[in-house]
């Protein structure tokens, strides 16, 4: 069974009288250990799809399973639990809490999973080590460079050992060189066995992921392996 399974998923937005069909009949399977990209022009529904996959939102119709669990009609609390336990997020604008230190930012997801302070600390340090920021644990995000902030965000996404990591334009706010090191990090994580889905509108980035899913106007128009799959 795939890790994520979407069947005929739609997502509608109502703006006054007008209905917007942001997603229109999505069928998608993502298997354990896959590294995929979702690409498409602005307004095509990438972020909307990400929010669904990341359990921040539920479909207007159709079904969606994660790890065998039907989340199509799950309650808000259930979704929060799933996000906490199974999903890690990396955002374009990092979304770190500016008043907390690097260490505290990375510990944040574990606060909501009832892990002891000692264990939190241990696991957070481990994750920070993985992104090579051990010398910055006492700093606040505003004292870091963009690339460093995104690495903190990756550490935070990793810390609860999620089933899958979602990244929405993770290099969008970074210069190309820094962006490359972040992508390198995703590649390494993928090789270590993580399941990763990243959203981009950059074909070069999409070409680096083994699987490339292109959407347009809320529909998947192409879903294929890239050359990277055979590298």
């Amino acid at each position: 069974m795939p890790l994520i399974e979407l069947r005929d998923v739609t997502r509608r937005y109502l703006i006054g009288e007008q209905e917007i069909l942001a997603l229109n009949g999505i069928n998608l399977d993502i298997a354990q250990g896959e590294y995929a990209s979702i690409i498409g022009p602005s307004g095509s529904g990438k972020s909307t799809l990400m929010h669904l996959l990341g359990c921040l939102d539920t479909p207007s119709s159709g079904t969606m399973h994660i790890d065998g669990i039907d989340v199509s009609r799950a309650s808000g609390n259930r979704l929060a639990e799933l996000r906490n336990a199974k999903i890690g997020f990396v955002f374009q604008n990092f979304n770190l809490l500016p008043k907390l230190t690097v260490l505290q930012n990375v510990e944040l997801p574990m606060i909501y999973s009832g892990i002891s302070a000692q264990e939190r600390n241990k696991r957070a340090l481990h994750a920070i080590e993985r992104v090579e920021l051990m010398n910055r644990i006492k700093n606040t995000p505003l004292q870091l460079s963009g690339g460093q902030m995104q690495r903190v965000a990756i550490a935070r996404a990793l810390v609860n050992r999620p089933k899958i990591i979602f990244a929405d334009e993770p290099t969008g706010n970074l210069d190309s060189k820094t962006g490359a090191t972040i992508l390198q990090m995703f590649r390494e994580l993928s090789e270590e066995g993580s399941t990763i889905v990243l959203v981009t509108h950059d074909n070069k980035i999409a070409a680096e992921t083994p699987r490339r899913i292109e959407i347009r106007d809320g529909r998947i128009v192409e879903d294929a392996l890239t050359e990277a799959a055979f590298a």
């Binding site: 921040l56 609390n77 929060a80 996000r83 997020f89 979304n95 809490l97 909501y112 999973s113």
Partner: peptide, 16 residues
């Protein structure tokens, strides 16, 4: 609001 959004995204429930 942003902070609340981040906390929610990493697993905070409404009641948290």
């Amino acid at each position: 609001i942003r902070e609340i959004g981040v906390r929610r995204a990493v697993g905070a429930k409404g009641r948290d």
